[in-house]
Design a protein around this nucleic acid. Structure first.
Lengths: 351, 351
DNA sequence: GTGAAAGCGCTAACAA
DNA sequence: TTGTTAGCGCTTTCAC
């Protein structure tokens, strides 16, 4: 029944415009060596017939697939969706990525890949084989996965690595986590804090280290002691709770805490509540994700705003430019994070 | 440079297994009339070579494209992403849709389409032309758009309409908004409320009417007067504020309000705060979306939980079944919403 | 500047 | 049960 869909093909356009297939193809792809007059004639037929090239056919014929894959960690992404806690990393990627893609006739496809499995490669290879995308956007913790990069390099697929500084195959893009952590720390120092605690993320994420480094730099520059002020979590609420308790139970507890993501920050808030520590009068808190929840906690959270949409848009641009042989710059792109000051930070000392 | 990617094709598999292309094709597509022994042999070669069929080629050859488009309203979706208020409709669709797709080797592609433009058809036609998806999932307010449905029917593309009851081309799926509104209203009635206000959504959304109907039914069954208890918004915060003010300014103000989405519910909370009306002691509030923010407001909101992930998963199943000639049922599928009771509802009268 | 021919990887229809 | 042939819609040579 639905065999052979009637669809307008390049042939129809060629016939209608009275030219060869090739000329139509040239017009579609904006290739040189076509008289303006011809272009106009062909374009008129295209518009008249409502012709749209089939990307499947384009790919088959050896051209581009106009597909870009945004690879995200399966387990974490699904957990975020299930929990419905407001984490909107994927949404922000789509916001920046889809819009930029649309500008160039590309599509962004979200693909979930399992980090922990030993068959990452198999899984990714399957996606590449089925879709044959022109480019791939890698997010932490995949951005620096050697196996993945090698696979991608072998297949000569354009790659943009978000949250990576390391040299290597593909484009590296960073939101300068170190600088962001430094900014957050300095904000607290300016408010008068000296005992500033830091809850790091898991070491599987390279950015965890950068954030700690930024905090260290700012603390060292101010000449503050960092003893008992560093704890580590795994981005989960539970781990954040343990880390916060550890910090608050110290001999000289912090008057401010920076947590490496929103979930752990929520845990800090809870730990403070449990100890009757008021935020921000007794304890200032800064989150390292500006997810929606930061606006709804009490008090609303001062947070590091990561420009995920913008960095994804740039990742898409780099890939498309490379496809178009427009050789984009190879140095790491920096899209700096900013600090949104809300009500969870105040001078220390209560009142 | 990256011309002609070396890729393992069906030919390599055929050669390796010492069979014809067709036999390999049959194995891939699980077609009958292949000896188990052959299947095993071919499968071994496939595994050995890591072969994955190109969906572009499959589509070209007249088979399926293994692509399903989830159509969402562009303006609203982008606004939601930009606002970062936690609306996770698209995430929930991906959660349900992508996982179900993956089970069957399909991919879900989110596509944004402009509702208001007079060129909806053009935009959608372009997406269909470029991607040639096997199926399309429509969400409100597109689910009952006659132009869209006609276009889809002409091209014989499988369609699942979420949030639709109307007969017509494609599968209709509903979360039974009327019943959900009735449940919410009855919950309040059981708590002892009589003056229960309702803030409706815009009439462009069919479901707006269903929700009002559910409220009306429950109110009528209880024998309660509905005078000055119905207001209408457009799903925006601002409209919610106006509607809430109108309701609260009435001669006999409501002791409870149900709002048709989360944003408008937030506005109700704000309006109450402005009038020193305590929630829930002076005013009970129910939201019609269980988006993440409902967990972070004060108090956390009692809310209608719409099973978007589940309904999307079913939509995908219906489409895939239809593609596989497995003729699924044509009657409307109902995936009922539930009520999550939190702290924004209490008996009336304060204390 | 334009067109003709070949072929991308796969499946449908047919033949054996 | 298996293999052969043609062709999907497009772009790439390579002629003209």
């Amino acid at each position: 029944m639905n065999r052979r869909r009637q669809a307008i093909t390049i042939k129809h356009v060629a016939a209608d415009a009275g030219v060869s297939l090739q000329t139509v193809s040239r017009v579609i792809n904006k290739e040189p060596n076509v008289r303006p007059e011809m272009i106009k004639r062909v374009q008129a037929s295209i518009d008249k017939l409502g012709y749209v090239p089939s990307i499947a056919a384009q790919r088959m014929a050896g051209s581009r697939s106009y597909l870009i894959l945004a690879i995200n960690d399966r387990e974490r992404t699904i957990a975020d969706w299930r929990d419905r806690q407001g984490t909107d990393w994927v949404d922000q990627m789509m916001l920046g990525g889809m819009i930029k893609c649309a500008e160039h006739g590309y599509r962004l496809l979200v693909e979930l890949v399992d980090t922990h499995s030993d068959h990452i490669e198999r899984e990714l290879a399957a996606a590449l084989g089925a879709l044959r995308p022109d480019g791939v956007i890698l997010t932490p913790p995949h951005s620096e996965n050697a196996e993945i990069l090698e696979l991608l390099q072998t297949r000569q697929i354009s790659v943009a690595r978000i949250g990576s500084l390391r040299e290597g195959y593909g484009f590296a893009l960073t939101m300068d986590d170190e600088r962001a952590a430094r900014m957050a720390t300095e904000h607290l120092i300016e408010l008068g804090h000296e005992r500033i605690g830091f809850i790091a993320g898991p070491s599987a994420y390279e950015l965890s280290g950068w954030r700690v480094a930024g905090w260290r730099t700012a603390m060292a520059a101010a000449g503050f002691d960092m003893t008992d002020l560093l704890a580590t979590g795994d981005f989960s609420y539970e781990s954040g709770l343990i880390a916060a308790e550890a910090l608050l139970a110290g001999d000289v507890p912090p008057t401010a805490i920076i947590a490496s993501n929103d979930r752990m920050t929520l845990a800090v808030l809870e730990a403070a509540r449990g100890r009757n520590v008021e935020v921000p009068s007794d304890l200032s808190v800064i989150s390292f994700d500006d997810t929606p929840i930061t606006r709804f906690t009490h008090p609303p959270l001062t947070a590091v705003v990561q420009p995920i949409a913008e960095v994804t848009a740039q990742a898409v641009s780099l890939i498309i430019d490379e496809q178009a042989q427009r050789d984009p710059p190879r140095n790491a792109i920096v899209v700096p994070a900013t600090l949104a000051v809300r009500s969870s930070t105040a001078p220390p000392g209560g009142n």
